[in-house]
Design a binder for these strands. Structure first.
Length: 227
DNA sequence: GCGACAG
DNA sequence: ATCTTGTCGC
């Protein structure tokens, strides 16, 4: 109990300390048409994390896939997921870039970016550590929101985080309807990308299912590796 | 005090 | 995330 509280205090301080380093431009240059993207997911078997990355282009064409096992060192604690999965993803990206001799421009991460109580979710942690553009795509929100999201595919609803220092609350992400009449997914900028661009590029890669095809494929590959 | 809680 | 039966719909 006492020891866990100490760990949470330490991790909370770490998030609060690094959050100001996250850069979310308001207006950004259009994303390079030749950008190389990576979608990542990890499956766990105890403390073994089976990580998979799907490398693809702006047209959604898959260029490479890569899976590898890494060890997790920190347990899952809600709002501190970055510390369990972040280091695994950082190692995976470095290994994949070396193996295929390429440089990834944008990362799609299964978790949140700045749509987080301390604006420092998994996608932000990874983006900052690797100095890459990153986007968080999660299946549940960590921040409450109000308003009504239309049932139509591609509709979205802004999510704001209360800011005690500003009268205006900060836009941190969106509830996004990736499939008609189905529970939304939650999209947020992680690092070096605007919220609007994060949503736009996620829309570009939306297929027939609730989860993006590239993340479904990463999920499938990671599960396959875990068997 | 109570409820909520990425994967 | 993982465990786990039946059920509904395309």
């Amino acid at each position: 109990m006492e020891k866990n509280d100490t760990l949470i205090k330490k991790l909370t301080d770490f998030q609060n300390q690094l959050a100001p380093s996250i850069w979310i431009p308001i207006d950004a240059e259009p994303i390079y048409k030749g950008a190389i993207l990576g979608a990542i997911d990890v499956q766990y078997e105890g403390e073994n994390g089976f990580a998979a990355i799907v490398i693809f282009d702006r047209k959604g064409k898959i260029l490479h896939t890569f899976t590898k096992k890494y060890e997790a060192t920190i347990p899952y604690i809600p709002s501190f997921f970055a510390f369990r999965e972040g280091d695994i993803i950082i190692r995976l990206v470095n290994d994949a870039e070396k193996k295929f001799n390429l440089n990834l421009d944008i990362l799609f991460i299964d978790g949140h970016g700045i749509a987080h109580p301390r604006k420092f979710g998994l996608a932000s942690y990874v983006g900052l550590a690797l100095e890459k553009m990153s986007i968080g795509i999660a299946k549940d929100t960590l921040v409450k929101y109000t308003g009504i999201l239309p049932t139509e595919k591609y509709s979205s609803l802004d999510i704001y985080l209360e800011d005690k220092n500003n009268a205006e609350n900060d836009l941190i992400g969106y509830a996004y309807r990736s499939r008609e009449d189905v529970k939304p997914i939650f999209v947020s900028a992680g690092h070096k990308i605007s919220s609007k661009q994060a949503l736009e590029i996620v829309k570009e890669h939306t297929g027939e299912y609730r989860q993006l095809d590239v993340l479904r494929e990463a999920d499938r590959l990671a599960r396959e590796a875990a068997e």
